[in-house]
Design a protein around this nucleic acid. Sequence first.
DNA 1: AGCAAAGCTGACGTTAGGGTAAACGGAACG
DNA 2: CGTTCCGTTTACCCTAACGTCAGCTTTGCT
Lengths: 133, 133
Amino acid sequence: MTTDTLNIREMCDAFEVTPRTLRFYEAKELLFPIREGQKRLFTKRDRARLKLILRGKRFGFSLEEIRQLLDLYHMEDGQVAQLSKTYEMSRVHLADMEAQKAELDEAISELKQQMAWGKAKLAELAEGNSVAA
Amino acid sequence: MTTDTLNIREMCDAFEVTPRTLRFYEAKELLFPIREGQKRLFTKRDRARLKLILRGKRFGFSLEEIRQLLDLYHMEDGQVAQLSKTYEMSRVHLADMEAQKAELDEAISELKQQMAWGKAKLAELAEGNSVAA
DNA sequence: AGCAAAGCTGACGTTAGGGTAAACGGAACG
DNA sequence: CGTTCCGTTTACCCTAACGTCAGCTTTGCT
């Protein structure tokens, strides 16, 4: 193994996030990089956590919710409690996401209609011009 | 007609928004209610604009974009320029929304998988307990 | 020694409002 | 006429998840 820890730049490149994001996550106690002098060094644990964080974000969890889940996860006992809490929260988010999807679908088809109308109107105006010309 | 203008409460009820929202939109120069004393009176024009604003929001336009479109709309000349600009912006947002939809669909199915895994794991742990008992 | 790159902290900006305070105006009531 | 209450007004701070900027070390290279 080369170093087993990543500096902030390497961490950013590995996960496609900005340094600001990593510092922010540290401030929010989602990551706990060790310090060498004042520089941050991200461990395997941080990498595992960040992976879960980014997945949680895709699922629409807030950072605060993610922090709670990670904390639960960290205390390895009580797996049942942790798993069922995660499951419960997931159910809520799934419902949320499906509602969002429905809204989005509706907005998309409405926008398409509007665009069709706009296109027709533009054609009409163009024709008017050419007739007048 | 009763008054032809609505006070803030009536306006809120008509569009399901809060007073705060209407004041905010006025501050952002999206609405221009007239003042009777210091109270706001929303005209037919404000109602038309608010309708467009809310529609724009559903389509994922930012308030700033909406303001620009409304301004274009306001100068009634150059309909072609206005329409085609709106059309162009709409295309961008449509692409955006379809990308969002794709991401959302993927996240939903991924979350469903995770939940299935979690459910199985929970069942397994429960069984372990009952076996051990 | 000098300088640039990389990293750090700290603070303010952003979006679309929410929440709350303090003050003001007008209508109803006694 | 005074009071009370309701609706509204201005005004300020708060939120999430960072972006951005200024200014300071630290480190490496020449």
